[in-house]
Design a binder for these strands. Structure first.
Lengths: 114, 114
DNA sequence: GACATGCATCGATGATCTTCGATATATTGA
DNA sequence: TCAATATATCGAAGATCATCGATGCATGTC
């Protein structure tokens, strides 16, 4: 588990001049994390909740089985959009603040065409 | 199920209260359009170009065959992100202004967590 | 009209993704 | 220690996707 090495090209805004392949891939990966209705709903539910959201609160509103929700949650955490916190046997999720800024920055195209 | 006649559920911001299934799907669709490195690069190339971009200018920088680029361009146009203009036998593409605003609005999560 | 060129469409292939039942792992309570 | 519960992981099935060669359809040129 290297922690020190890894430039790992972070996602670049769509308006970046001379975007590299690695940046394009990282940016696409971030968007792809939100490219599923279930994951959009999860982010929406977490974003509009005052408190952190338990995984068990998601199965019913999403209408998906527990393993499926777990799968989507993992993808969102891996993408850096959600933060996972274990409380006893429950898993709670919150929006990751970095992600909010990153997403807005990446999606920003203003100044390019308007 | 549907209300009266549907407004064709446009994508809703991630911070929308009580997001519907249709809105979640539309939002996911928009993100999915940008969920591929090739499409991110296309949008980037078009966004950073002063003038509209010819399809033929994309094959080489993307390193993809002509049918593949055509496929990606169609997806971006369908998603409302690019606008297609035919000039003689050439196809030119520009950023669609609506998309710029829509994307920024959908990706906006500020005020929710920060 | 015949030919060349730019792009879209078709068809096939291999990869990736979503979904869920079954099962494993971890934590709590008795 | 044993049973119950919450979540993650595994494995499989079906769907979707990216890719490209071959081909069709326009448009422009001679």
């Amino acid at each position: 588990m290297s922690t020190t090495l890894e430039p790992v090209a972070c996602c670049a805004p769509l308006s970046t001049a001379a975007m590299s392949d690695a940046e394009a891939s990282a940016t696409a990966e971030l968007f792809r994390a939100l490219g599923d209705p279930a994951r959009v709903r999860i982010v929406n539910l977490v974003a509009t909740s005052d408190e952190s959201v338990c995984a068990c609160e998601l199965y019913e509103p999403l209408g998906l089985a527990q393993p499926t929700v777990s799968h989507h949650l993992k993808k969102l955490v891996d993408a850096g959009l959600l933060e996972r916190e274990q409380r006893g046997k429950w898993a709670y999720f919150t929006l990751k603040r970095d992600a909010v800024e990153k997403l807005a920055a990446v999606a920003d195209l203003k100044g390019v065409c308007c």
